[in-house]
Amino acid sequence: MVYFINDIITGALIGLLYALVAMGFVVIYRASKVFNFAQGELVIIGGFIVWFTTMQLGLSLWLSIPLSLVLAGLVGYLIERIFLTKLIGESVFSMVMVTVGLLILLRGVVLLLFGASVRPFPIIFPLKPLLLGDMLIPMNLLIGGIITIVAAVGLSWFFNWTRSGLRMTAVAEDHVVAASMGISVKGSIAFAWILGAILSTIGAMIFLSGKSLTFLASDIGFAALPVALFAGLESIGGLVLAGIIIGVIQSLTTNYLDPIIGGSLGSVVPYIIMLAILLIRPTGLFGWRTIERV
C-alpha cells in the first residue's frame, strides 16, 4: 500500500512538471490565441542557457539561475520581435505556422551553436530523495511541484485580477479591436513570449537537474500537450488539476499495467486521455466556451 501511495505522489509530481511546461503554452495562447508548437524547443533553449552559464561560464547557481531566466526572457522577446510582431492583425493561422517554423529553426540553432553532444546538466536540486517512512519522493520533482503551484496561483491572479492580465486577454480576443481600444498589442504579445520562455527555462531546470542535456529533451513539450488540452487552453489553474490527473494515471499505468502487458502503455495513456477529452469536451475541462452568433 505504501508503494501504491508513493507511486501516486510521484505521478502527481511528474504531472505538475508537465503542467509547468504546459503553462508556457497557455500563457502565450491567452495573450495571442497562438498555439506555440515550439514550446519544447523553448525548454531546450532554456536548458542550454542554464548549462552555458553554469558549466561553461562557471557561475554559481545563485548567479546563473537568475541570469539564465533573464537571458531566456530576452530570447522570448527577440523571437516575438523578429518573427511575430509583423504578423499582428494577420490571421492566427499564420502565427501558428510561424511557430511550426520556429520549432525547426530553434532545433537547428541549438545544433549549430552547441553541437549534438550529450552534456551533463548541472545538479540544481538535491539528488537525494525525501524519505517519509518507506516513501521516497524525488527532490527535484517535489520542489518543481511547489514551484508549479505557486506559478499557477500567481499567473491566475495576474490574468484574472490585474489590468495588464485582462488587457492580454482582450488582445487574444481580437488584435485589431484591442489596438483600437488603446491596448498595446505588441507589448502584450511580447510579454507573453517572455513569460513563456521563462516558464520553459524553470521547467528545464526541474526536468533536467542532474541528468543529461540533448535536443531530445524537447520531447517534454509533447508530453505537456495532453495536459494543456485536457485543462483547456485558457485555464492556468486547471493545468494543476489536469497535470495531477494525467501524471497519476500515467504513473499507475507504468507501474502496474506495463509490467503485465510488457509494453509502454504509460507513455501513450496521456494522449488517449487527450483524444477522449477532445471528443467529449473539445474546449477541455476548464477552457472557455465561446458562443458565435452568425
Partner: peptide, 19 residues
Amino acid sequence: VEVIYTDVQPTDLTAQMRR
C-alpha cells in the same frame, strides 16, 4: 525480473529503479 519501457529522455526513473 522486468523489462521497463521508458521515453528516450526519461523524466524520472526513481520509482522504476526502486522496483
